[in-house]
Structure formats: structure tokens, C-alpha cells
């Protein structure tokens, strides 16, 4: 092990939109890295609220996910970025990922999920969480979901369907209904 130490994280601040590209929120866009992929799109959306219940209107939201077969090494470019709007709402258009192998290896599988990171003014480092899909049978055996003892806490990671191809997960940074955030 060398003596080097990872560089400290600093806040993205309120003016990070200089690196915003609104089209990045659509992972299936015609001129994007997944152009030509014949697949059914889903929408992932929700509102980000602070400890006072106010919308976090300046948030930088990023997702990282596997393809429909649960692979990260396929041709699917599973990265997206979105700027929260005036209601604190994020919105991505993407495909539904497949089950992903578990960290322990073997035949164990994680339920389909999307990694979601939030950067913003007032966040000196990102808040990382996951979005799971309600009604997915593998949720019952997912190692991460099962490591959360309280059902109401576990529920903060599970998006609810709102129509056939739209999934909603609100995120609460602090206080009542606080989202489970991950130390990765």
C-alpha cells in the first residue's frame, strides 16, 4: 500500500449546471451512446426534499445501471445525469435493468436496481442510494434490501409504479421518511 490518500470531496455548489447537458437524462436518445437500441423505455422520476420538506432545486442527480441482462460490460451505456427542476424533481428515460450478480459471487443475484447519486450545494460529498422496482420477486432475497431491518426504511429504496412504464421514487435527504443512503 502506498502513502497516497484519496483527494477530498468538495461540494458541486449551486453553479454546477455549467456541466449540465439535459439530453444526458435520456439514456435512449436518438443521437446518444445507446442509439439504435430496440428496447422499451421506462421513466424514473421523483422529488428530492430536504429536512424541512422543501424541494432541492439545485441537485445534480446521476444514475448508473446495468443493461436488461444485468450486465455492466455489455454495449449499453448505463449512465445518466439530470438537473433537478424547480420542484426538486428528477426524471430519466432508460431501460429496466436485469438482475445483477451479488458481491459474494456464485449464483446469488441482486434484484434489478439503479444506482443513484445526488450532488448539490450543501453536500460536501455525494449522497448515494439505489432505486429498486416494486413487485420484483427478487427484492425479497436481495442482500442489500434484506440488510435493512425496518420495513419502512427498506421502502425508501423501492420505486412505485405510476402507469405501465413510469416509476416514482421520492428522496428525502433528512428527517421523517429519510432515504437510506449508502456508504459505498
Amino acid at each position: 500500500m502506498s502513502g497516497m490518500v484519496a483527494t477530498a470531496s468538495q461540494t458541486a455548489g449551486p453553479y454546477w449546471h455549467l456541466i449540465d447537458h439535459p439530453e444526458w437524462a435520456d439514456l435512449l436518445r436518438m443521437d446518444g451512446p445507446n442509439a439504435g437500441l430496440a428496447t422499451a423505455a421506462i421513466t424514473l422520476t421523483g422529488r428530492i426534499m430536504d429536512g424541512a420538506g422543501e424541494p432541492v432545486t439545485d441537485a445534480l442527480v446521476e444514475i448508473w445501471q446495468a443493461d436488461a441482462e444485468g450486465r455492466y460490460d455489455g454495449s449499453f451505456h448505463g449512465f445518466g445525469r439530470c438537473a433537478a427542476d424547480r420542484e426538486g424533481r428528477y426524471r430519466f428515460s432508460t431501460l429496466r435493468p436485469g438482475p445483477v450478480p451479488a458481491p459474494a459471487g456464485g449464483n446469488a443475484r441482486q434484484a434489478p436496481h439503479v444506482a443513484l447519486s445526488i450532488f448539490a450545494r450543501g453536500l460536501l460529498k455525494p449522497l448515494v442510494t439505489r432505486l429498486y422496482f416494486a413487485g420484483e420477486p427478487l427484492n425479497d432475497t436481495d442482500p442489500l434490501l434484506n440488510s435493512i431491518a425496518e420495513p419502512e426504511r427498506r421502502a425508501t429504496l423501492i420505486a412505485r409504479p405510476d402507469g405501465p412504464a413510469r416509476w416514482v421514487l421520492d428522496i428525502r435527504l433528512q428527517g421523517e421518511g429519510e432515504t437510506v443512503f449508502l456508504e459505498v
Binding site: 444506482a115 433528512q174 459505498v184
Partner: peptide
């Protein structure tokens, strides 16, 4: 700006898998 934006609950430590 951290006052209303920092989580109060401890973070859930997760082992690194394919996603991470």
C-alpha cells in the same frame, strides 16, 4: 447549506459488487 441536507441516520455500508 449542510444543515437541512445532511442525513441524520447512519449510512448503510454495502460491500462492493458489480454496481460499485
Amino acid at each position: 447549506s449542510t444543515r437541512l441536507r445532511h442525513p441524520l441516520r447512519p449510512l448503510l455500508r454495502v460491500p462492493h459488487g458489480p454496481t460499485e
